[in-house]
Design a protein around this nucleic acid. Structure first.
Length: 677
RNA sequence: GCCGGUGUAGCUCAGUGGUAGAGCAACCGCCUUGUAAGCGGUUGGUCGUCGGUUCAAUCCCGACCACCGGCUCCA
């Protein structure tokens, strides 16, 4: 979610004369030091952010950074995290400090406390934070003369000591994932603490090991809110103790905070789990088990429309539709190489006739068997298999979530077998195809991620360095050629090869990982896949895995949130509902609806004994694209009257024209409207 | 899997150590209506499951299941 971030105003550099503070220079340049556009830090000539009380020894040119710029917001949030930590230690003196970095739209701080935080605690902490902010405490940077000095001062903070020790190691051996640069200058040779000073007394009231920089004063924290608390493993490893994390958000102004909280509300309103119940789309019966969904008739309509369309498009793009079973003997997954890597996340095997059978967690091994079922010629390549393959994965109990993280899912999975020479074109073809499909469903804003091998963890990946290099280069080139933004994801590759994933932004700016394209040189070798080349020799194909939506279930969830349940007409479970003004208008509307049904439109008449206004309300709540009303007037004129979801109307439309209108909107597969506007 | 929270009617939620209530939905009537809730009535719950404490448990305790928020993980 990207909130109301605005691009930083282009500010001229200001000159800080030797021996004076950055603050004085900013002030001399006539820039604000308070208010919603306050300059809070400066960027020096090396690109490093500096506190406003930084006093360079020689004249420097610096770039003022405003509180509402991306960097300024990070500083604001980082400082707010400090205020939170101070409040926590005021109220819970035994609390030990973890780390407290800014994150997108907010911040968090980790603490070790005797008792996990309760919601009431957050309210108390917010109140204490308000007091601290009101005091206008000053953040002051202080440099430790030595590691020993730092350790002596931080003796009562075991986690901070650990961080200092890590630094003492020379910063080496830090694979465990935490960003120590948050608390200290990695490689910068500096160890600093920020003291919080009460401006009235000049006394130090609190302090925290931190690299900074910080706001000049807590007073600049315009608005903040603590959002939730949760446990988090120290330094990100489940082998370490769990600390209690408090998440919060902070903004330069109350209005900006309000706007962000509205966005969160909007996200909650769109939650597909809630809409799935309200619109009667799907449910997760306890009796079946966690993470296993059933689609109700209305959800089934959307799912079928999606599948029908996607199947047709695959066939148009040269894919051949195949089908495979849900279980297999274990040997198959040994051959493919999946079992050693994923045994823990596959459902445990069942024994039958002396063999172990696994529920399948991936489709590719079975597609490989189809490839191998007979000799293949180079003339067949690229050979493209596609299916809706339902797979089962034993997701840990704590991670199952709605449709986005399930234990049974249907992949729109394809595998292209081609020569290494054909691979770049095939990847390009797939990328264009997946983007066109996403566009067809109304997702038009995306960027790419390139997931590569982590060379420091060779046991997580199989294959030679050369093969990885080739595969990665092919994907990278295609990604670059697409012109889309490309974000690296080191270490994110599957064990058998690198991947491109498409991240799509939804209507309220959240991004979701959708399609993936993976280059795999491993499985063809493991399965001994071959084709006969033009010269008669036997050659090894490469295979390219691709899922367009990833999982049909998840994509339906994403679409539900993207459209807030108001699906485009072509996907809507009920496309038209007829609303009679009076009970005796039902037959008139029924004949209209029959005409629509003859055209394949999903239409019905609301013949309940509710009043017309109530029927409109019901149809609105069900987010039905076309409401069609008819009373005496329309019946006499041979017309109907449209009310659309957005409340707009088109009255007195002749029957045939009305039918043609609905049919046109539905068949166009437009993702807009419909509306009279 | 780990930490915390939650679990009462189809949905949203009250409630209490003495075997339960509202609104909406559903059903039955009355009303006959032109663009977001007409009126009345009825039905509906082993209070997530199992065990314990107690004369008595929906309420207290424990285990399990599920969901929510995170962490970790995500072929």
């Amino acid at each position: 979610m990207s909130g109301s971030r605005q691009p930083a105003a282009v500010v001229d550099r200001v000159v800080v004369p030797a021996g004076t503070t950055a603050s004085e220079a900013v002030k001399a340049a006539g820039l604000p030091l308070t208010g919603p556009k306050a300059i809070v830090v400066v960027r020096d000539e090396t690109g490093r952010l500096r506190d406003l009380d930084w006093t360079p020894e020689v004249e420097v040119h610096v770039e003022p950074v405003a509180i509402d710029s991306p960097d300024g917001l990070s500083v604001l949030r980082h400082s707010t995290a400090h205020v939170l930590a101070q409040a926590v230690q005021d109220i819970f003196p035994e609390a030990k400090l973890g780390i407290g970095p800014p994150i997108e739209n907010g911040f968090y701080y980790d603490f070790q406390v005797a008792r996990p935080f309760q919601p009431e605690d957050l309210a108390k902490l917010e109140k204490r934070m308000q007091e601290i902010i009101k005091l206008g405490q000053v953040f002051r940077r202080r440099r430790f003369a030595s590691l020993e000095e730092a350790k002596a001062e931080l003796a009562s903070e075991p986690f901070k000591l650990e961080l200092v020790d890590i630094k003492g190691d020379g910063g080496a051996g830090q694979g465990a994932g935490i960003d120590t640069s948050e608390v200290m200058e990695v490689g910068g040779g500096e160890l600093t603490i920020y003291d919080n000073i009460d401006p009235k007394t000049g006394k130090r009231v609190w302090g925290d090991l931190c690299r900074g920089p910080h706001l000049p004063s807590t007073r600049l924290i315009g608005a903040f809110s603590l959002l939730r608390s949760a446990a988090a493993y120290w330094r990100g490893s489940e082998k370490n103790p769990q600390l209690q994390r408090i998440y919060g958000t902070a903004w330069p102004t109350k209005d900006a905070l309000k706007e962000y909280l509205h966005l969160l509300e909007e996200a909650a309103r769109r939650d597909h789990r809630r809409l799935g119940t309200e619109l009667d789309l799907f449910s997760f019966p306890d009796e079946i088990g966690s993470g296993l969904v059933v689609f109700h008739p209305k959800g089934g309509v959307i799912k079928r429309e999606m599948e029908d369309y996607v199947r047709r498009r695959h066939i148009e793009e040269g894919f051949q539709y195949v089908g495979t079973p849900h279980i297999s003997k274990e040997g198959l997954f040994h051959t493919s190489g999946h079992l050693p890597y994923y045994a823990e996340t596959m459902f445990p095997p069942m024994q039958m006739e002396g063999a172990n059978y696994y529920l399948k967690a991936m489709n590719c091994p079975m597609h490989n068997l189809i490839y191998r079922s007979r000799g293949r010629s180079y003339r067949e390549l690229p050979l493209r298999f596609f299916e809706f393959g339902t797979v089962y994965r034993y997701e840990k109990s704590g991670v199952v979530q709605g449709l986005t993280r399930v234990r049974g899912l249907t992949q729109d999975d394809s595998h292209s077998y081609c020569t290494p020479e054909q691979a770049p074109d095939e990847v390009r073809h797939l990328l264009n195809f997946v983007l066109s499909l996403l566009r067809d469903f109304g997702l038009t804003d995306y960027y790419l991620e390139l997931s590569t091998r982590d060379d420091s963890k060779p046991d997580k990946f199989v294959g030679s360095d050369e093969d990885w290099a080739v595969a990665t280069a092919v994907l990278e080139q295609v990604a670059l050629d697409s012109g889309l933004k490309l974000v690296p994801d080191p270490g994110g590759a599957a064990f058998y090869g690198p991947k491109i994933s498409v991240q799509a932004r939804d209507a309220i700016g959240r991004t979701w990982q959708m399609s993936t394209i993976q280059y795999d040189f491993n499985q063809p070798a493991r399965f001994g896949l071959e084709y006969q080349a033009a010269d008669g020799s036997r050659q090894r194909p490469v295979m390219i895995h691709s899922a367009k939506f990833g999982s049909i279930e998840r994509f339906l969830g994403v679409l539900t949130e993207h459209y807030a349940g108001a699906f485009p007409a072509w996907l809507a479970p009920v496309q038209v509902v007829g609303i009679p003004i009076r009970e005796d208008h039902v037959p008139y509307l029924q004949s209209f609806v029959d005409k629509l049904r003859a055209e394949g439109i999903r239409a019905e008449v609301d013949d309940s004994d509710d009043r017309m206004q109530k029927k409109i309300r019901t149809a609105q709540q069900q987010k039905i694209p076309f409401m069609v009303l008819a009373g005496d007037q329309d019946a006499a004129d041979g017309t109907v009257s449209f009310r659309y979801r957005d409340g707009s109307q088109r009255n007195g439309v002749p029957i045939d024209e009305a039918v043609a209108h609905v049919v046109e909107v539905v068949r166009s597969r437009t993702n807009e409207g419909p509306s009279a506007a």
